[in-house]
Amino acid sequence: MKMDRNEMQQQYKRAVLKTTRNVRMTQLSILLLFFAGWELTTYLRWIDPLLFSSPSRVWHLFVLRIQDGSLFMHTSVTLFETILGFLLGTFIGTFIAGLLWWSPFLSRVLDPYLVILNSMPKVALGPILIVGLGPGFTSIIAMGALISLVITTMVVYHAFKEVDENYLKVIKSFGASKKQTFFRVVFPASYPTLISTLKVNVGLAWVGVIVGEFLVSKQGLGYMIIYGFQVFNFTLVMLALLIIAVLATVMYHLVEILEKKLIRHES
């Protein structure tokens, strides 16, 4: 006897949904186990709560710092710096990549300098930035931007250059100018690379900003970490780390939403 196709399709759907549910449940279990294990081991003094804090301590500090408003202040400062650093690094990097595409001469001239700047650990420039731009959020944003700028330039320029010559032929055959060629073909053809650059830059901007706050040490989540470390308040350090983890994840997902908007045609 032949089974009903609709029935089979329903079965298939149930199986797929079940797997998805299992994945989600396992993910959640890992998270809960982590926090429960952390709480338990510190409670039983298997690990030193002075060094590793515990979820309940972090939670109490979280509530306390929300109430006195200081957590919101530190978080918003860091978030502002990170978003600005991320945007500046990405936009300026892409802009320079565009200039290099426009002028092959410039691209050949700048090539060795880009290689040097790229191999250089950008956070090592921190002290110079602080001396130059002052010990404030300008230096921190500059750090967040600088860390992603050079690599963005190199990767995006490469993508611009690798656009299939035949697409250029198509638009040139209609008498397109160089500007039209760039904005109608080269740039949109590089969307996939731009998106993956954005994803990398989200992470890089956080690195730059947190290190910048370490150095400037005035306010922000990076400051919370370094201050907590110095006064041996590791609950404060853990709180800052957890907030960074949550915010970085949110930013990453925002980029993914942008990706879905930009690259509809691949669906």
Binding site: D164, P188, H265
Partner: peptide
């Protein structure tokens, strides 16, 4: 190149993003 002349390539090379 001018629009007076049309060009058709070996493959369609339609722009996938349009």
């Amino acid at each position: 190149p001018t629009p007076e002349t049309g060009y058709m390539l070996q493959q369609d090379y339609l722009f996938p993003w349009l």
